[in-house]
């Protein structure tokens, strides 16, 4: 393993994050705070509790997941798409690095950034509501796995995209609706029976449910299913990336 190269890519990508600190960190924190104001204070004051947890606290895991998933995809897709767009990808492709090292560098940086955002939102949430984390190790595990797997997914989107419109397409039209409909702001048990069944086809439900379980010890679906879902998603992304580098699809044309 060429760790020197991995570190070079990682540092270069993290430098981009710190160069655009306001956009990278402050913006998601601000929007999350607004969610707390609107959902937690305005709407939450009319919803007393959800399965024994105050509504303000209940939405914290969903809000963290919402930001972490969208940020992971956005950062990772942009990270690999931008070199393609401006042409600097030639340097990565001609360097003595394997695809695993390239992925660790880019995805590692994107996952780090979204993890930072997740932690910052968690800290921010403490200023609004009381939060006790029932299973901190699971919580951290879910958070890291989500950051990594969605960064891998974003990496695939960045390679697939031929223009900026395509780059935005998947996060805006697929991920955002899935996350909103995946129980970020509600328990799926609050839905009518038919919609509960439909919701179970949304893979994000399993991730948010598992993450919420690590906070409050309650879940929409069994924790084992949640772990299986995130592991399957991770494996699928890794398989696609392996195929991309093996064939050079949209990279070595």
């Amino acid at each position: 393993m060429n760790w020197q190269s991995v570190a070079a890519i990682y540092r270069f990508e993290m430098a981009r994050t710190f160069r655009t600190l306001l956009q990278s960190i402050v913006s998601p924190v601000l929007s999350t705070s607004l969610y707390f104001v609107v959902f937690g204070a305005a709407i939450g004051s009319r919803i007393d509790q959800v399965e024994g947890v105050s509504y303000g606290s209940f939405i914290v895991p969903g809000l963290i997941m919402l930001s972490v998933m969208t940020q992971s995809i956005t950062v990772a897709s942009f990270g690999i798409y931008f070199p393609k767009f401006i042409g600097t990808i030639f340097e990565i492709l001609s360097a003595p690095v394997s695809f695993i090292e390239i992925v660790i560098g880019y995805v590692g940086a994107a996952a780090t950034k979204s993890l930072m955002i997740g932690v910052i939102i968690l800290i921010t949430a403490h200023f609004f509501v009381d939060i006790d984390i029932a299973h901190p190790v699971y919580m951290l595990g879910f958070l890291v796995l989500t950051c990594v797997s969605f960064s891998l997914f974003g990496f695939i989107i960045g390679i697939w995209a031929r223009n900026f419109e395509q780059l935005q397409l998947v996060p805006l039209l697929i991920i955002t609706p899935l996350v909103f409909l995946g129980g970020s702001f509600y328990s799926i048990s609050m839905l009518p029976a038919a919609w509960q069944t439909v919701a179970l086809f949304n893979p994000v439900v399993y991730l948010i449910s598992g993450f919420r379980w690590s906070f409050f010890g309650m879940a929409d679906v069994p924790i084992g299913w949640s772990l299986l879902a995130i592991a399957a998603f991770l494996a699928l992304c890794l398989a696609v990336i392996w195929w991309i580098f093996k064939t050079g699809w949209r990279l070595r044309n």
Binding site: N2, Q4, S5, A7, A8, I9, R11, F12, A15, R16, R19, P83, I86, G87, T88, F90, E91, I92, S94, A95, P96, V97
Partner: peptide, 30 residues
Amino acid sequence: IGLVPQEVSLEPFETVINTVSFSRGLFGLP
């Protein structure tokens, strides 16, 4: 191998020294 491509492809917001140092690291050198 070192390659100077035909197109001027550089990260516009990066500094000269950082982008040159990055290339060295990318090729696995301290």
